[in-house]
Simulated scan of single mutants.
Amino acid sequence: MENNTRPNKAEEMFLNLAYNRFYDLYEEIMEDSFWDKDSYYRFTKINSMFTVYAELLNYEPLKHVIKIIELKRPPMESNIAKELFKFIRNTMAHFPFFDSWNEVYVNKEIINWYKKGMMIDKFLISYEGKEEVKYRFWHSKKKSMTYLSIKFPTSYTAGENIYLKDILNEKEGIEFASILMKKVLDTQVIENS
């Protein structure tokens, strides 16, 4: 009889490494002093956080969490927690030519240089012209509310550069992304008393 208990031994090893790394990055990014660091330092940490999160989304129970978010949370939250964050991760991973968040861009030609219809291309085709999504989040340490907008490209045509900073600004956008990612990942954490 096969043991289907989750997590299995391999998953547990992976999850321990990934969760520890994610929470370390989260804690650092949420500190005010993080934003005083140079842009390259910030970019490497942000890139790592999106990479770890995207890898964790391969864990089957987290796929179910995304489906629950789709059913029970405000419209677009599951799309942002999965598709937008994977788009950002894939953009940084497949086009590692930049040293800061504000420099990162893609365009239709670069995205499709090798093959059309891959994840980044599909995302931009799907979200081209979609209305911006407005969010707010509470900073418990600062006792303040932050407001932000996620803006999808108005067009995805040849010759037009699409910057990550125009979709999600660096400081508030990354803090928001960090909080949403953490909420998704926290669903699989058993707290010890």
Rank of each mutant, 00 (worst) to 15 (best):
K86T: 04
F87I: 01
I88H: 09
I88P: 10
R89T: 06
N90V: 01
N90M: 03
N90E: 03
T91H: 05
M92E: 00
A93F: 14
H94W: 14
F95H: 09
F95E: 08
F97G: 09
F97C: 11
F98S: 04
D99H: 15
D99M: 14
S100A: 08
S100E: 05
S100M: 07
W101I: 00
W101R: 05
W101K: 04
N102E: 09
Y105R: 05
Y105V: 00
Y105D: 06
V106R: 02
V106K: 03
V106D: 10
N107F: 13
N107I: 03
K108C: 03
K108T: 01
E109Q: 09
I110K: 13
I111H: 04
I111Q: 08
I111A: 09
I111R: 05
Y114H: 14
K116W: 13
G117T: 00
M118H: 15
M118T: 07
M119I: 12
I120P: 04
I120M: 07
I120R: 07
D121Q: 06
D121K: 06
D121E: 03
D121A: 05
D121G: 03
K122M: 12
F123E: 08
F123G: 02
F123K: 00
L124M: 08
L124T: 01
L124F: 08
I125S: 13
S126R: 12
S126V: 02
Y127P: 11
E128H: 06
E128K: 13
E128G: 02
G129Y: 12
G129W: 13
K130H: 10
K130A: 08
E131C: 08
E131H: 12
E132K: 14
E132S: 09
V133P: 03
V133G: 04
V133I: 09
K134N: 05
K134M: 13
K134I: 03
Y135M: 06
Y135W: 12
R136K: 14
F137K: 12
W138N: 06
W138D: 05
W138G: 02
H139C: 13
H139T: 10
H139M: 15
H139G: 09
S140Q: 11
K141Y: 13
K141T: 07
K141V: 07
K142P: 04
K142L: 11
K143F: 15
K143W: 12
S144G: 05
S144T: 09
M145F: 15
T146H: 13
T146Y: 15
Y147M: 08
Y147R: 15
L148F: 09
L148C: 02
L148D: 02
L148V: 00
L148T: 00
L148W: 07
S149D: 06
S149H: 07
I150R: 06
K151N: 10
K151T: 06
K151G: 07
K151V: 04
K151R: 10
P153V: 00
P153T: 00
S155H: 11
S155A: 08
S155Q: 14
Y156V: 01
Y156T: 01
T157I: 14
A158K: 15
A158E: 14
A158R: 13
A158I: 10
G159Q: 02
I162K: 01
I162F: 11
I162M: 05
I162T: 00
